[in-house]
Structure formats: C-alpha cells, structure tokens
C-alpha cells in the first residue's frame, strides 16, 4: 500500500486538511494490536532525525520515525540506555520506531512504563495544531502533561512528531534473568506472555527504580489485576471525559477511533 511521507509541519497540515481519515504508521510492527483502520496511511519514515542529544544530561530528543534499535545503539556508545530496551528489549522489535513505542505504550518488565521516560513531546492534533508539551530536561511541571497523555493513545488523539526521552546509565541496569531473554519470540508473543503472568510480574530488582508493574494495556482505562485479568468497570463519567478529550484534540475524527472498547 502506498503511503504519504510528510517531513515538515506544513506537509502534515496539508495531509490532515486533505484527508477525512488518516492512519499514522511507524514501523508497522503493531498491526495486530490495532483494529483494521480505514484511511490514508501516513508514515513517519522520513522523520527519523535526532533533534537533540545531550548524553551529559541523560537526554535525547528524536523525531517519531527514529528507529528504536538505532537510537539504542547511539546512546549505548555513551553508556546510556532507555531502560525499557534492556536485553535487546521487550519492546525492541526489529523496525520499531520511537513514535510507535510511545503511541502504543505497551507493557514491559522492570523499569516503569514508557510514560515514565517520556519528558517532552511535539504532536499535531486533528485540527492541525502543532503542540509542545514537557521540556528537554528530566523535570518540568510547566503546563499540562500532554506528553504523558499521548503515551498509549494509539494515534487516535494526534500524530506524534518528536519525543524527548530521559535516559539511564547502562551500568545501573540489573541483570535480566536468562529466562526473560526470549530473543526468538516475536514481540507479540512476549506481550501475550506478559498477560498470562501479570499477577507475578516484578521487576528484576525492585528497589532500583520506581515501578514494578505492567500498565497501559488495551483497553485504555483498564488495568491488569492479579492473574493477568483486566480489572476495571465502565464508567459513564470517564467515558464522557474521554469523549471530550477526543473532541478537543481531534474533533473531526480524522485519526479514527477503534481500539477503545
């Protein structure tokens, strides 16, 4: 299938203006998680630059089409990592992009959620507004945390253009148990396994970082309880707030809507 490959904000705006439905695509590795969406495919493949990299400050900002493995190799040269990607990564599936990882916000073991490492973002709304949130430093409370909101949004609230990530010293990463390094399994299988054992999931070395749980699995708004089951209930007020959110960021529905059950 042919796809559009915008590079600039203006090109993005033109695409959003000229199409009723678009489907944002990174490496195309997450298809199984998404419903069959209709519309023009817009690929981030030409948006693959490093915008800013300051190893001394443990920070990198990249365009959303940046290949995750390439970024990992780059920062590893300075003894740094995105701790989600240890052992070639629970999420380090070949071809995966940074934007895709952030938009999916899928679970992983050990080092908090994707959300905890995203410190800034630039995205474009359905109406074509280019929005900045967060900052290029590891700590900022200026404005609302739209960069955290967009994590796990599956491309339905906006298209991610740039992501600023906090990095972590490789040296501080705990050893990953051999049985966790399922190198041959596909990414989808790994995630499926994490569903099954969610009740027992603990990070390899809990005290070294703040999180030890899985988060952010579909459907949004639900969580994994013990035994790996989804817990949560439908709530009309929460649904209404989410509808407001969609309306505010993508009132025309150009980014589609499907995975929220």
């Amino acid at each position: 299938m042919t796809s559009l490959t915008p590079r600039t904000h203006d090109e993005w705006r033109d695409i959003l203006r000229g199409n009723n439905k678009v489907r944002v695509c990174g490496g195309g590795t997450a298809g199984v998680w998404l419903p069959e969406l209709k519309g023009t495919v817009v690929s981030s493949e030409l948006m693959n630059r490093v915008v800013e990299y300051r190893p001394d400050d443990l920070l990198i900002r990249v365009e959303s089409g940046m290949n995750l493995a390439e970024m990992s190799e780059l920062v590893a040269r300075d003894g740094l990592c995105l701790p989600l990607l240890r052992d070639r990564g629970w999420l380090g599936y070949a071809g995966q992009t940074v934007g895709g990882m952030v938009a999916m916000g899928l679970p992983h073991y050990g080092a908090g959620s994707v959300r905890d490492w995203v410190v800034g973002m630039k995205f474009i709304t359905g109406g074509g507004a280019v929005v900045d949130s967060g900052a290029n430093v590891v700590k900022s409370v200026a404005g609302f945390d739209l960069h955290r909101l967009l994590v796990g949004s599956r491309g339905e609230l906006g298209a991610i253009l740039e992501v600023a990530l906090r990095l972590y010293p490789l040296k501080m990463m705990p050893e990953v148990p051999a049985e966790w390094a399922m190198q041959d399994e596909t990414w989808v299988h790994r995630v499926s396994r994490s569903f099954e054992c969610a009740g027992e999931v603990r990070s390899p070395n809990r005290e070294w970082l703040w999180s030890n749980r899985l988060i952010d699995l579909p459907p949004q708004g639900w969580a994994i309880g013990s035994g790996g089951r989804f817990v949560g209930t439908r709530d009309s007020t929460r649904d209404r707030l989410r509808a407001n959110l969609k309306n505010v960021l993508d009132g025309r529905g150009v980014f589609g809507e499907g995975w929220r059950r």
Partner: peptide, 27 residues
C-alpha cells in the same frame, strides 16, 4: 470531584486510566 459536583473514580489500586491521570497530576 469534578466542577459539576460529580464524583468520579479514575484509576485504582492496580492503576488504569493512565491517560486521564496524566492530566490530573500537576493540574
């Protein structure tokens, strides 16, 4: 408590609703 006076539960002991929680914390 929302401005309307409605009471709403967002997230819970196992997490969940991280999208809305992201907006509430720091608001």
């Amino acid at each position: 408590v929302l401005a309307s006076g409605e009471i709403v539960t967002i997230g819970g002991p196992c997490g969940g609703d991280e999208d809305l929680i992201s907006l509430i914390v720091g608001s």
